[in-house]
């Protein structure tokens, strides 16, 4: 049980964010109204996605260093899970944008960047499926993954800051700090982010273990 403490912690954080996110006081802002509470649910998806893509890159680097097949398996499953979180983040963002910015796909650099970053990782999966030989596939996929990662960082964190954006913190818009001057939101937001990162890592962990068993079975 002691090995599972982080899973329990992540679960508690997520459950706490569900309750507190709905009940606690939020700043009263025009346009956003109550929908500001989406911050607790929509934004953690992106945090979780970026964290597990970073995990994928870490294991890709480890794979190139050691040639251990298991590292490649972690990288694949991290990318697969990251894609799920990215798609959920995009979808939830579209719903939110539809009611606050007036359109599901306002021409916003952060949206476009997120969509392109998702395409980047779809390209990774296509690259993998185009190769048959296992070691070669692992190696080339790892190389592409490492090559793509800095580009994704530029897409998600640099480009939106250069252009006008509807998202807070970009292109002259006030940062996240302006929305929680009373800092009450931090009490919910940070646990929510940590909790979802924990859940994402947990899912990666489960998928990796399944993959490992499948892999073993295929080899026999």
């Amino acid at each position: 049980m002691s090995k599972n403490w982080w899973k329990v912690l992540a679960s508690v954080f997520v459950l706490y964010s569900v309750v507190a996110g709905l009940l606690f006081k939020v700043p009263t802002l025009p346009i956003l109204h109550e929908s500001i509470r989406n911050l607790y649910y929509h934004v953690p998806m992106w945090f979780a996605m970026v964290v597990i893509y970073s995990v994928a890159v870490y294991y890709s680097i480890r794979y190139l260093q050691t040639g251990d097949e298991n590292h490649d398996l972690v990288a694949v499953e991290a990318v697969n899970t990251g894609l799920v979180f990215g798609l959920v983040g995009l979808a939830s963002g579209m719903v939110w944008a539809n009611y606050t910015w007036g359109a599901p796909w306002p021409n916003d650099p952060k949206l476009n960047s997120a969509a392109i970053a998702t395409l980047l990782y779809f390209a990774y999966t296509v690259l993998r499926s185009s190769l048959d030989e296992e070691q070669k596939r692992a190696k080339i996929a790892a190389i592409y993954n490492i090559f793509a990662y800095p580009i994704m960082v530029v897409l998600l964190f640099v480009l939106p800051r250069l252009t006008d954006s509807l998202h807070p913190g970009n292109g002259g818009n006030p940062g996240f700090g302006a929305y929680d001057l009373d800092s009450n939101m931090r009490f919910v937001f940070y646990p929510a982010v940590l909790g979802w990162i924990g859940i994402a890592v947990w899912i990666v962990n489960i998928r990796y273990r399944i993959r490992k068993i499948e892999n073993k079975r295929n080899q026999i």
Partner: peptide, 10 residues
């Protein structure tokens, strides 16, 4: 084309 487009877009 698939690999390069997402990388070149930024």
């Amino acid at each position: 084309a698939i690999l390069s487009f997402p990388v070149i877009i930024p």
